[in-house]
Simulated assay, not measured.
Amino acid sequence: MPDLDTGHIFLTTLAPIKDGTCLDDGYRLSWRQKVRNALVTLPVAQQSPATVNSGLNSPFARNRRTHLARMFVLDDVVYNGREPTNAVAGALKGLATGNDAESNPALPQHTDYLNCAYLVFCADIDAVTETGIALPTTLSKADQERVRRSYAEELWTTMGEELKAIYSACVGFEKVRDAKGFADYLEACHVETTMPFHDYYIGDITGAFHRLPVKALGAAVVVPLIVTVLAFLAALFTQWSLWGINPVWIMLVAGALTGLAFWMAVRFAIRNGEKPLPPGPYDDLPSVLKALYVQQRFSDLAIDLQGAPPEDIHTRFGQWLEVNRPADRSGPTQAPGVIRSPKGAI
């Protein structure tokens, strides 16, 4: 299903950027440059010594639904070169039609381009309307829209000033006044995607995929096809009939059943492929943050207890469990947007 997989919404929006120029702090610059200036000053997550020492963090870290977020300006689509063609077939077609545009590399082919630059926003978020609740296996189109709107409203609440600075150069954003207006705006800019941004499965995921009953589907198509062929041969070379029924009628009915079975098998395969994978056991952001926290705290404990007697290890591990509560996702846990949480007392 587009946008939804493993209990996550893979959000993609394209907001058109205004053409022309504007004044920004007394300088004349394009609207595209204004967006780029806002993006380049946006703090990133604390993922390196330099970003940690800055004391700043990404504004997307102010909520606990965002696994990944990315914003960039798309000036135009990339030209991948001429579409490959068969030289011989193109030459023959040119001779037949008098149009050798396909075979003559000196003549340009049609080239796609955007009518303006776009601000692209991609985010991998928990497909929930409330932080911490269980991830869904599937959602209706309406439920997906509710998740997107809920997330957009939370973004406006937690980082509204940054969003105003970024989107103020986009077409139609001047009408946005509140969280609901921003949710409406992002929904208008939303485009479907079938490309997941992450994979949190921690074991063998082959059992999670929706396997096709290939043998059953094949039999459903092949059996009436065989009857069709046999009835055709009987009608062509013999005077055979089944219970007085002309083999031509059997051929027509079996052929129709073959076509119907093939169409239904294709539809079944497509619908089966559109089903989203179920969420992993620890795919939600609170579980991911808790796992990172427990991993670090347990490593600290193991280092501290090197060479300690068994009695001390038992006592300290009990204290560690009481303080860190591994099964409690609400805390203590790692904060979003940081690569490491501060070392605790245990």
Score class of each variant (00 low, 15 high):
Gly98Lys: 01
Gly98Val: 09
Gly98His: 02
Gly98Pro: 04
Asp100Val: 12
Asp100Lys: 09
Ala101Asn: 13
Glu102Gly: 01
Ala106Trp: 05
Leu107Asp: 06
Pro108Ala: 11
Gln109Cys: 01
His110Lys: 09
Thr111Gly: 00
Asp112Lys: 07
Tyr113Gly: 08
Leu114Ala: 07
Asn115Val: 05
Asn115Glu: 14
Cys116Asp: 04
Cys116Glu: 06
Leu119His: 10
Leu119Trp: 07
Val120Ala: 13
Phe121Met: 10
Cys122Ser: 11
Asp124Tyr: 02
Asp124Gly: 09
Ile125Ala: 11
Val128Asp: 06
Thr129Phe: 03
Glu130Gln: 15
Thr131Trp: 03
Gly132Met: 13
Ile133Arg: 14
Ile133Thr: 15
Ala134Cys: 05
Leu135Gly: 09
Leu135Gln: 08
Pro136Cys: 09
Ser140Phe: 10
Ser140Gln: 08
Gln144Arg: 14
Arg146Ser: 14
Arg148Trp: 03
Arg149Phe: 00
Tyr151His: 15
Ala152Phe: 02
Glu153Met: 15
Glu153Trp: 00
Glu154Gly: 01
Trp156Asp: 02
Thr157Ala: 11
Gly160Phe: 03
Glu161Gly: 00
Glu162Phe: 05
Ile166Gly: 05
Ile166Glu: 04
Ile166Trp: 01
Cys170Asn: 05
Cys170Pro: 02
Gly172Ser: 06
Glu174Trp: 03
Lys175Pro: 02
Gly181Gln: 05
Phe182Ile: 00
Ala183His: 01
Tyr185Arg: 05
Tyr185Asp: 06
Leu186Lys: 00
Cys189Glu: 04
Glu192Trp: 05
Glu192Ile: 01
Thr193Glu: 07
Thr193Asp: 09
Pro196Lys: 00
Phe197Trp: 03
Asp199Met: 08
Asp199Phe: 13
Tyr200Phe: 15
Tyr201Arg: 09
Tyr201Phe: 14
Ile202Ser: 15
Asp204Ile: 02
Asp204Phe: 04
Thr206Pro: 01
Gly207Ala: 12
Gly207Arg: 12
Ala208Val: 10
Ala208Thr: 12
Phe209His: 15
Phe209Arg: 14
Phe209Tyr: 15
His210Ala: 11
Arg211Lys: 15
Leu212Ile: 11
Lys215Tyr: 07
Lys215Phe: 10
Lys215Asp: 04
Ala216Glu: 11
Gly218Ile: 06
Ala220Arg: 10
Val221Tyr: 07
Val221His: 08
Pro224Leu: 06
Pro224His: 04
Pro224Tyr: 05
Leu225Arg: 02
Leu225Thr: 13
Thr228Val: 02
